[in-house]
């Protein structure tokens, strides 16, 4: 075996082992990335306050925070409810309970904001679960960085 080939094989093996060691830590409990939510089902932060302010309560979306309860207790979107974290089975069960009395066509908005969008482990599983349960009008609030920076700091309607 040529020396250069050995070096390539050794390097590949080293990278693989390092990745595996890192993976023991970084492998989350099988979450679906937020990036699996179709773009058409996303809603931007500046589009939500007018929807929340509508006079016709039937048209106001049912907003659910699917991340951390400690986050929710600090601040949440005005009128929203907590059901999470949906990266875990117990959180999905809470979500199912939260929507159990709603019509399948009810307008539902999910949000988390725990982490940068491409790292959020909660909104992907929540969206898929509601889709699997037959809810047809579900959108996910896009937050590039986190709830603090993308909602609270921008002055959107918040309550504790």
């Amino acid at each position: 075996m040529k020396h250069s080939v050995r070096i390539v094989l050794f390097s590949t093996l080293s990278v693989t082992l390092a990745s595996a060691a890192q993976g023991q830590f970084s492998a989350a409990p099988a979450p679906l990335s937020a990036t699996t939510v179709p773009a058409a089902q996303l809603i931007q932060a500046n589009d939500l306050p007018p929807l929340l302010a509508q006079n016709d309560s039937a048209k106001v979306p049912f907003v659910i925070q699917v991340g951390s309860r400690v986050f929710f207790e600090q601040a949440h979107i005005r009128g929203s409810v907590y059901a999470g974290p949906t990266s875990q089975p117990a959180g999905l069960a809470l979500l199912e309970k939260a929507v159990s009395g709603l019509a399948k066509e009810r307008f539902i908005i999910l949000y988390c904001g725990c982490c940068p969008w491409n790292r959020c482990p909660n909104v992907g599983p929540a969206f898929k679960h509601l889709h699997d349960l037959g809810y047809t009008n579900v959108k996910v609030l896009y937050m590039a960085n986190n709830f603090g920076d993308d909602w609270v700091a921008k002055g959107y309607p918040t309550e504790k």
Binding site: F71, A75, G148, V152
Partner: peptide, 25 residues
């Protein structure tokens, strides 16, 4: 499982608010 070698506390909203609010990790 990961043999974390430093103390871990369970956080709450008052503690997070002491540190300016923790609304992202």
């Amino acid at each position: 499982k990961h043999r974390v070698n430093y103390p871990i506390l369970i956080g709450d909203a008052p503690l997070a608010e002491l540190y300016g609010g923790v609304l992202g990790l």
